[in-house]
Design a protein around this nucleic acid. Structure first.
Lengths: 156, 156
DNA sequence: TTAGATGCAAATCTTTTGCAGTGCG
DNA sequence: CGCACTGCAAAAGATTTGCATCTAA
């Protein structure tokens, strides 16, 4: 379930970064570059905490508060995707296509699912009564294949 | 968008409450009854805080921690539905049919949307790779009809 | 040059926990 | 009567904020 990312894809994202910042009127700082690079390179969905930990190896003075600020700005300007997580640290990723998430209730792992057709269907729902959709978040909760297997074995 | 609830529907839910508790092996306490009654009677999606405030008029000693415990248990046993809200207090409702939510980015109001067909479609997605769905949360973010109108008027 | 960014520490907000006392079944 | 429940206060996270200092453009 955890996506492996093509080196080419990473390069593509990094190359686009300065331009994305300019569009968002954000200055290109070492901190922002490092955070973005870390996110662009991973297929996992790290928390601000773990992003901080990882980027700190390169920028030892980077503060957690700054990571939060940077992630918020990135999310607000559409550079990254924020996955709010009930009563736990939020998760972030740098994929910006329309994809959604599976959350395993046992191991907590977050996976990606493509649900492209969903958006088209949703936009013409009469039940929306004039609501203008700007983002659709779909979270599928349950058990990932592995935990489901363990569960079956452990079941009383 | 905010649902008006039939008095009959409220009665139906309340009548079912003791039975639901027994199934969940939860004792029927005044606190639990009051919290459930409050949720069953409202079409809004109150926070633990506002539930506490409302129920306190009837049970002045009710503590917020208890409200949290009760809501968690209710949600765990399927008596109510928890809507986790990014970096804000969670919201709860007592409707347990398969419905989803719109969140207005301007006024914060939460509305209900019925997306019954969605579940059937999701369950047979190959992309899930063995993931067992137990709950689907769909959150449509954007602007409600009223805020969208205001927005258009206020736009630069 | 200067508006915007950063780092630190303290504050805030939501939710959880420990524990003694209480009450439902 | 016993175990589950409650209330209180204190703790635990996650995230935000104030402010002095820096730095990208």
């Amino acid at each position: 379930m955890s996506a492996m990312i093509h080196p080419d894809e990473i390069q593509l994202r990094l190359a686009r970064f300065p331009q994305l910042c300019r569009q968002a009127r954000l200055k290109v700082t070492p901190q922002r570059s490092a955070v973005y690079a870390m996110l662009a390179a991973t297929g996992s969905h790290p928390t601000p905490e773990s992003i901080h930990l990882a980027v700190r190896e390169e920028l030892p003075n980077l503060s957690l508060a700054t990571v939060y600020k940077i992630l918020d700005q990135f999310a607000a300007h559409g550079l990254v995707h924020k996955i709010p997580n009930p009563n736990q640290a939020a998760r972030y990723d740098a994929r910006m296509d329309n994809h959604h998430h599976t959350v395993c209730g046992a191991c907590g792992r977050i996976g990606d699912v493509l649900l492209e057709p969903l958006h088209r269907d949703l936009e013409r729902l009469p039940a929306l009564e004039g609501f203008q959709i700007s983002r659709v978040d779909v979270v599928l909760r349950g058990l990932c294949a592995e935990c489901a297997a363990t569960d079956r074995r452990t079941a009383s």
